[in-house]
Amino acid sequence: MKPNLALRMAWKLVWQIILSAILAVFTCYLLIIVLERMTRNNNIQRRFIRELYYMFGEMPLMLFACFLLFITYMIVFNWRRFSYYDKLSRSVEHVAEGNFDDLIPVKQNNEVSLLAENINSLVLELKRSLDEERKAEQTKNELITNVSHDLRTPLTSIIGYLGLIEQDRYRDEVELRHYVQIAYAKAERLNVLIHDLFEYTRMRHDVIPFNKQAFNLVEMMKQLLVHHRLLLESANMKGNLISHSNELTLSGDPDKLVRVFENLLTNAISYGYAGGKVEIYLNQHNESAVIDIVNYGEAIPATALPHLFDRFYRVDKSRTENSGGTGLGLAIAKGIVERHGGTISVTSDGDSTNFRVRLPLS
Results as ranks from 00 to 15, higher is better:
300 I>N: 04
47 R>I: 10
34 V>L: 15
287 E>N: 14
113 S>P: 07
98 G>T: 04
240 N>L: 12
260 V>W: 00
323 S>K: 13
277 K>M: 08
225 L>S: 03
120 N>D: 00
117 E>C: 03
132 E>N: 11
239 G>D: 01
228 H>S: 12
159 I>V: 15
28 C>D: 11
37 R>A: 06
320 T>I: 05
17 I>Y: 09
61 L>F: 15
35 L>I: 09
168 D>T: 05
22 I>Y: 04
165 I>S: 05
56 F>I: 09
223 Q>G: 11
113 S>E: 12
344 I>M: 11
172 D>G: 11
307 H>F: 14
60 P>I: 04
254 P>W: 02
109 N>L: 11
102 D>E: 14
237 M>K: 03
30 L>C: 11
250 L>M: 03
186 K>M: 12
329 G>V: 02
103 L>R: 03
74 M>R: 15
264 L>G: 01
277 K>F: 01
154 P>N: 03
65 A>D: 04
103 L>M: 08
327 G>N: 06
129 S>L: 05
63 L>Y: 12
204 R>I: 08
170 Y>Q: 03
75 I>R: 14
271 Y>K: 02
99 N>D: 12
235 A>Y: 09
270 S>K: 11
293 I>N: 01
95 V>L: 00
72 T>A: 13
176 L>E: 11
247 E>H: 00
143 L>R: 15
152 R>P: 05
318 S>F: 05
147 V>W: 12
100 F>V: 13
3 P>G: 02
68 L>D: 07
119 I>K: 03
211 N>E: 12
226 V>Y: 07
93 E>A: 14
262 E>F: 01
324 G>I: 06
151 L>P: 00
182 I>W: 04
133 E>P: 02
73 Y>Q: 13
20 S>L: 06
224 L>A: 05
232 L>V: 05
338 E>N: 13
65 A>M: 02
165 I>V: 15
303 T>N: 12
88 L>I: 00
308 L>A: 05
123 V>W: 03
31 L>A: 12
135 K>E: 13
246 N>V: 00
248 L>R: 00
207 V>T: 01
33 I>A: 10
328 L>R: 09
10 A>P: 03
299 A>V: 06
55 M>L: 14
4 N>F: 10
360 P>K: 02
358 R>Q: 10
301 P>N: 01
299 A>G: 14
48 F>K: 05
266 T>C: 03
82 F>R: 07
339 R>Y: 07
214 A>E: 14
154 P>K: 01
168 D>R: 10
348 S>D: 06
345 S>C: 12
27 T>A: 15
76 V>P: 05
168 D>A: 11
269 I>N: 04
298 E>N: 10
187 A>N: 10
